[in-house]
Nucleic acid binder design. Structure first.
Lengths: 156, 156
DNA sequence: AAATAAAACTTGCAAATTGCAAGTTTTATT
DNA sequence: AATAAAACTTGCAATTTGCAAGTTTTATTT
């Protein structure tokens, strides 16, 4: 585990993994504009390190040669259970913007949620599992759910 | 989750949490000598931060006034599922010293393992759930197991 | 009772890492 | 042909880390 913490034991790496895993972020630009305020040099550095450790890979956009897609590897997507438990913990113990119903659903259907996240990864389903849950309350948000359910709410 | 990563989004904090959770470490000295090579100023700083964020608390040793015991709070022990998934992931995808059978047991009995870790915390059972798995191979190690099982092996 | 040792920190300082602003390069678009 | 976008890179100041040595308080030893 010591090794693992050299992989993503910093302020940003796990956030990038989460953004790829459940928010559907793919490009440098998207991470940069995600609102988390990561500097571009650090972003480039973290993406490179995640590649070196085999958690992330890149592929060129066939339609736009300027663009590079970042994508989790299998090793990366296998962090889904860790990420899920972390999201659940954070929702319970920290100020978080994630709507209560979404979290309840995730807690009650852990295995199915993990499977759905993996499925979207496998099939390159571009629909993000979770939206960014911003502070613009009251907005109805459809949340990626496993079997015909939905919720409103906000915040991560 | 952004907030959470300010809590333990660094090289050491999660390691300290793991050491408290499954290795039974309690004192400054034990962390210091755990072989992970954390500098004492950083150790003091991380323990203080974990206290501030309510993940760790301290209590004086009634028998030796020099000693301070560090202990996870409820918020801290509730990180057990995250830690378990991380250990499982690390064992599968990184070089790790944890014996195969131990990991198989953890994977096959996730809920029971989490419950046992919490039980030891609740009852202040001093027996660590996992030994440090050093590189002295061949040694038989009894591993904290849920229902009459045991294993040998080594490494984290 | 005095000297020594342990445990838990703290301090000073050099080295490494981060964050910010401003480039650079390559590939579209207008 | 000129302009714009996307993905980085560079330079530099500010913060954080790591290392070695020191301090403080409470046991233990002699």
């Amino acid at each position: 585990m010591n090794v693992s913490l050299e992989r993503f034991g910093d302020r940003w790496s796990l956030l990038l993994i989460r953004d790829m895993m459940v928010r559907g972020y793919k490009t440098f630009k998207e991470f940069q504009e995600s609102g988390e305020g990561i500097a571009t040099n650090i972003l480039a550095n973290r993406l490179a390190r995640l590649q070196e450790s085999g958690i992330v890979m890149t592929e060129p956009d066939p339609e736009d040669g300027r663009r590079v897609y970042y994508r989790l590897t299998e090793k990366g997507i296998e962090l889904a259970p860790v990420m899920l438990e972390l999201l659940i913990w954070a929702a319970r113990w920290e100020e978080t913007a994630a709507p209560c119903e979404v979290m309840q659903h995730m807690e009650a259907n852990r295995a199915a949620v993990v499977e759905e996240v993996k499925r979207r990864w496998r099939e390159r389903d571009p629909v993000p599992f979770l939206p960014p849950f911003n502070e613009n309350a009251g907005n109805e948000v459809k949340v990626g759910v496993v079997k015909k359910r939905s919720s409103k709410g906000e915040t991560e």
